[in-house]
């Protein structure tokens, strides 16, 4: 092998070395959901909508699954902390996440958060990115959503776009979830684990469905709340607690 060939081979090696390894889907733990998703959460854009505070925990769950041991970037404009509270590292630990890998970026506004998101996706070693953009800022339009979806796909990173109190419009996301909190069973002594009615209302690569999920803090994954012998609270499905959840359902 002459020098030039050797050099070309090394170049090829280096180029391949720097490519993001195509990440396989990350199973959520909830069997039915994993089956429909084709194995779990894939790289790309995933939207989480909720009328109330349920979305934060659900998005944190998805992020813990997707990040694994890699760094978790959480980006939010300043105003979100006033509305929904500041992100607590202690709380993340309680959910079975890794606070040591958490990097929080407080952007001055939604446009700043979006451009930071693009920057973060340029690094292939990021575990996952949560973009928390509540309300309906003008900067998050269809074009911005497409751009984000494209960047997420190219980077091979699962991006979770958390939209509390927002109306769902058209977008280029892989999946879209509508989430509401579910009460614990009335006679449960260990009440208080996060539980949600999570509807997969949009799915690019397959069917949609409704799931009843419970978060397992010990193992850091989703479980089937029914299989855990927890009956859904009768009032929960019809209740539409706060701002605009019902409208969101109609809009989709």
């Amino acid at each position: 092998m002459n020098k030039r060939e050797k050099l070309a081979e090394l170049r090829h090696f280096v180029a391949r070395y720097h490519l993001p390894d195509m990440r396989p889907p990350v199973p959520l733990g909830h069997d039915a959901a994993d089956a429909i998703l084709g194995g779990g959460l894939r790289p790309g854009l995933h939207e989480v909508f909720a009328g109330d505070w349920a979305a934060g925990g659900f998005a944190a769950g998805l992020a813990i699954r997707a990040a694994g041991t890699r760094p978790l970037f959480w980006v939010r404009p300043d105003y979100e902390a006033l509305e929904y509270g500041a992100l607590s590292a202690q709380g993340l630990l309680e959910l079975g996440g890794h606070p040591a890998g958490l990097v929080l970026l407080r952007a001055p506004n939604a446009a700043g958060a979006l451009s930071a998101g693009a920057d973060i996706l340029s690094c292939p070693h990021v575990g996952t990115l949560v973009l928390e953009i509540g309300g309906m800022p003008r900067s998050l339009d269809l074009v911005a959503g497409r751009r984000l979806a494209l960047a997420a796909g190219e980077a091979g990173i699962a991006v979770i776009l958390l939209r509390a109190g927002a109306q769902a419009g058209p977008s280029a996301a892989q999946t879209r979830w509508q989430v509401s909190t579910a009460p614990s069973r009335a006679d449960d002594d260990d009440w208080g684990s996060p539980r949600w009615h999570a509807s997969l209302i949009r799915h690019r690569q397959g069917a949609t469905s409704d799931f009843f999920m419970q978060w397992d803090c010990d193992h850091g994954l989703f479980r089937d709340a029914e299989a855990a012998k927890y009956a859904p609270h009768p009032g929960a499905v019809v209740s539409a607690p706060a701002h605009g959840q019902t409208q969101a359902r109609i809009a989709v």
């Binding site: 505070w53 509270g85 607590s88």
Partner: peptide, 12 residues
Amino acid sequence: NDPPRRPLRLFE
């Protein structure tokens, strides 16, 4: 099986 004892969101 313990539920979280500390919240994910804290108001400053």
